[in-house]
Write a protein that binds this DNA or RNA. Structure first.
Lengths: 186, 186
DNA sequence: GTCTATACGAAGATAGAC
DNA sequence: GTCTATCTTCGTATAGAC
């Protein structure tokens, strides 16, 4: 019974899960094949350049998901505090309360770093700017807002690592819970 | 001219550099062999279990270095602020101002995670406690001190990632510069 | 303690049948 | 669009000479 056993979107979701768990180099075609239920050749049919294309598809998918489900919160017509609250709630959901690793961490190391570092540099800069804009709306100077936003991104990334190392999601949850207040504290 | 072309300590230092750059799975024996100047068989002579032993030696070496050169600052007979300042200066040097990656990040992913995660859980807990003790000396409650210390470790890890993603060491440098003041802010 | 040689499986990748 | 088969390269690991 040939016919798409799985949709491309579903395949990409499972590919992302493998990258999250094993990193770029650790995500072997065998693991990707098992996770998707697709044979090696089927993977190459969908992703002609193999792992690089799968990683690119993973990045595109994650970016699109965030652009649809998380970032818009920062542009809604709401008070700064509520915008930030919706945003951090969205992020906490995205990272499954700290269970999931972030590709910004995984894909800026080793071989993947040479391929994707510039992608993530742009993404991180854009994220900091988007948060800073909201903080600025709340009455902080551009420089102060930018530093606070950078600290927020640092806290997200650091909390993911500390939670992973400890095997305990509470640090991540605490950071996300307190983030809005910290961004707006006088 | 057989004879140790390189000391074991020097070999371990170069092995650590490879792990830092490529992560655990990305650190192939070929790369480790090139970095140390030792043939594959020589590596197995020094590290009978191959990569696992090299990673263990890397961890032991890093732990010993920190225990000698960085952590003692937290136990010196100095005011809390000066202890923390010496400590953060030591860490900044250890991470080469943000240029170096942290093994806590790299070795808690993928296969390495299964091998070493518990090692890092212990290390992170011990580090948080050591920082918290000093913060407590400065007059904060145990709970408050512990949370502040956890935030400090989160900031270190996050700053390393953000600096790496941006290709810019300034976020890390800023975090280290401001860490003492943040830990002791009223 | 280092080297060359080699074994062996895993990884990435492709060809061609269905 | 998926499969089996195949290919090559790379990674890990060992044997044995020097």
């Amino acid at each position: 019974m040939p016919a798409p056993v799985i949709s491309r979107d579903e395949a990409v979701d499972r590919i992302i899960a493998v990258f999250r768990q094993y990193g770029y180099e650790g995500a072997s075609l065998t693991r990707l094949s098992e996770a998707t239920g697709l044979g090696r050749s089927s993977l190459y049919h969908h992703f002609p350049n193999g792992k690089v294309d799968m990683a690119q598809a993973a990045l595109d998918s994650v970016r699109a998901w965030l652009a649809t489900n998380v970032f818009p919160a920062l542009s809604e017509d709401l008070p700064p505090e509520e915008k930030l609250r919706k945003f951090t709630d969205g992020l906490a959901h995205f990272y499954r309360n700290g269970e999931r690793a972030c590709l910004t961490d995984l894909f800026t190391m080793g071989e993947a770093g040479e391929l994707f570092q510039e992608h993530f540099a742009k993404g991180v800069r854009a994220l900091i700017k988007a948060i800073a804009r909201v903080v600025q709306e709340a009455g902080f100077t551009p420089d102060d807002a930018s530093t606070r936003a950078e600290d927020a991104v640092i806290a997200i990334q650091g909390a993911l690592i500390v939670s992973r190392a400890l095997g305990d999601q509470r640090p991540f949850q605490r950071v996300m819970r307190d983030m809005t207040a910290k961004l707006l504290a006088r």
